[in-house]
Design a protein around this nucleic acid. Structure first.
Lengths: 147, 147
DNA sequence: GCCAACCCGATAGGATTTGTCAACTATACC
DNA sequence: GGTATAGTTGACAAATCCTATCGGGTTGGC
């Protein structure tokens, strides 16, 4: 029902890359794009979004590039997903950050679907709002066996 | 990121309606569609899908209609969503019922995104695979205050 | 045999996703 | 100040998915 978008995957990949980079060493778009196999122009849009929302800053010209604006452990998956994919809630009427009435819903308080998916939304947020980019960076890396 | 589809809402609404109907009294598509404000032709497709997957049975001709094939407490939200919206997992590589490698993923075991969203998928499934149509039917109905 | 009701395939408009392109602007460095 | 670097902007295009709609076909009951 609910695949996350390619855009979100790219955004997370890029942020993890930025978090792994030595502090104050800006990464340029082209490098991130090449190394992580992200279409460059698409990545530009994504990083711009993340910048506008205050996750990143950038410097132009030679020696420029993108840098995280906050420590990686202060950037949650939930925040990133909300920026690139919009609300996390599976129904508009369950979004905290962007509530909207379901178009055809007459009686929200009695909507069974809403009540069930409220639990889903809670469970999802519990994970996404507590997991940070730093957690991702710290994940164990299994050796890739050479063949 | 992950709204459930209109189709899923319709499917759930219809199933709840069928679960509320007195046993062995088939409901006809037109009635369900009218009462629950679902486009009739669209509902036909949905009910056919649900029938093909064994949730419903139907009888043609006069006095016909649709009937639940199993007690409502044996039909989970997860099952319904998988039928109408496809896999529940937020990444193809996390689907139990329909695993597929992510197109651009080189090293699945080390994919940070995968590891994080595995938790999301677990949490979601824990809700959806344990909640049944019967739970929905039993939900408390608040009085709608007349104005 | 005829009507009710389900069954099936095609199709279409719109939205969203995913990406591309061309041109512009700011910065560093010589 | 010129030039190469690198981010910024806005428009646009292909592909896919969602949400239906349409017309007819089939089956069963009376």
């Amino acid at each position: 029902m609910a695949m996350i978008s390619q855009k979100a995957k790219y955004a997370l990949r890029a942020l993890i890359a930025l978090a792994r980079a030595p502090q104050s060493e800006p990464l340029v778009i082209s490098d991130i794009a090449r190394v992580h196999r992200i279409p460059k122009k698409f990545l530009e849009q994504i990083l711009l979004d993340l910048k506008r929302q205050g996750l990143l800053t950038s410097k132009r010209g030679k020696g420029g590039g993108y840098v995280l604006l906050r420590p990686a452990d202060k950037i949650t998956y939930g925040e990133v997903l909300r920026i690139v994919d919009g609300p996390i809630a599976p129904l508009p009427c369950l979004s905290i950050t962007a509530y909207r009435k379901c178009a055809d819903c007459l009686d929200e308080t009695n909507c069974e679907t809403r009540q069930v998916f409220a639990h889903v939304a809670d469970a999802t947020r519990k994970v996404l709002d507590q997991t940070t980019i730093a957690d991702a960076v710290a994940m164990p890396r299994h050796e890739l066996l050479a063949s």
